[in-house]
Simulated scan of single mutants.
Amino acid sequence: MARVSQEHLDARRRQILDGAARCFARNGFHAASMQDVLREVDLSAGAVYRYFRGKEELIEAIVTEVLDEISTTFEAAARQSPPPPPDELVGRVLTEVLGERPGLSYDGDTGFPRLMVQVWTETLRNEALSAVMRQGFKKVRAAWVGVVEAYQRAGLMRDDVPADHVARTMIAAAQGFAAQQALFGTAPVAVLQDGLRGLMSMAGQRGS
């Protein structure tokens, strides 16, 4: 029997993950069955179960992959001197990591924000997925802290505010914008970038 190449195995795994993501985004995690996933990816049950034992493993793999990509983007930015400004960096992440995944648009019935909301909801009841999310958030947060500290070292951001507080706020801005997309309709990433630039333009007055 001919040996299957690693390239083929990787491509098949990619096909399954992309199809499952589309299926979950469109139908919701609980409404989508493994039969729905099989139809979406046009593979047999044996071919899919070779890689993933069920929906839980699929969604955990999707979440882990996305969080790793986000943290990698921020870690690379932190190594620049100085890093790109927050509006540019957040916009880059939302566009490149969230908005251009295979088979998923940033809007519409299979848009990535819809999948994000599905994941957040499932996290509240699935302890295994919750653990994946906590670990991923910790990694993303640490990467963002590195970016903020680089801003502070370069004199681009006041250094009397804890870097972790700024990092959490910037993550919240991206998450909140994605939630708005999923719940209230689409808007270009430039809207968030403009808003961040507006906030960044305020005079740095300290409260008394």
Rank of each mutant, 00 (worst) to 15 (best):
S44H: 06
D160F: 09
A76E: 14
A174N: 02
Q118H: 09
V37H: 01
R168E: 13
R101K: 14
T186N: 14
A32G: 05
V63L: 15
R114D: 02
Q15C: 06
E100W: 08
R101E: 03
A154D: 11
P162K: 10
D109I: 08
G28N: 04
L124I: 03
Y51P: 05
G176F: 10
Q181V: 11
S5W: 06
F137V: 09
G108N: 07
D87P: 03
I171P: 00
A131N: 11
V63H: 12
V66P: 01
A178V: 14
V37F: 01
V132L: 05
R3I: 15
E56N: 12
F74D: 00
D194Q: 09
F52S: 08
R168M: 13
L183E: 12
Q35H: 14
S71Y: 03
T73P: 01
F52W: 07
P188R: 12
P162H: 10
A32I: 05
D10C: 04
L192W: 03
R22I: 02
R12A: 09
I59Y: 05
V189C: 08
V140L: 10
R14H: 14
R101T: 00
G198Q: 10
S105M: 09
A2D: 14
C23Y: 00
T64Y: 03
L196Q: 10
R101Y: 00
R26P: 00
D10W: 03
P86R: 09
R125L: 09
G111A: 03
L104G: 08
D194T: 08
S201K: 05
A20V: 01
A25F: 00
D18G: 03
Y106I: 14
A131P: 02
A20Y: 00
R134L: 11
L38V: 05
L192I: 04
P83Y: 04
S208K: 07
A20M: 02
T110Q: 12
I171A: 12
Q80T: 06
T169M: 15
P85C: 07
G176C: 07
R101D: 00
V66Q: 06
P86T: 11
L94V: 11
G111V: 01
V166T: 15
G198C: 07
S5K: 10
V37Q: 02
M34I: 15
D42Q: 15
M116K: 11
L98D: 04
M1E: 12
P86E: 11
Y106A: 12
Q181I: 12
L156W: 08
L183V: 14
D109V: 14
F184R: 11
V148L: 06
A128Y: 04
M200C: 11
G28W: 01
S71W: 02
M200E: 15
D18A: 14
I171S: 10
F112I: 09
A61R: 04
M133R: 13
A45V: 09
E69H: 13
R92T: 10
S5R: 11
D109Y: 04
I59W: 00
P188H: 11
K139H: 15
F24K: 00
M133H: 12
A32Y: 00
S130P: 01
L17Q: 01
R22M: 12
A143M: 10
V148F: 04
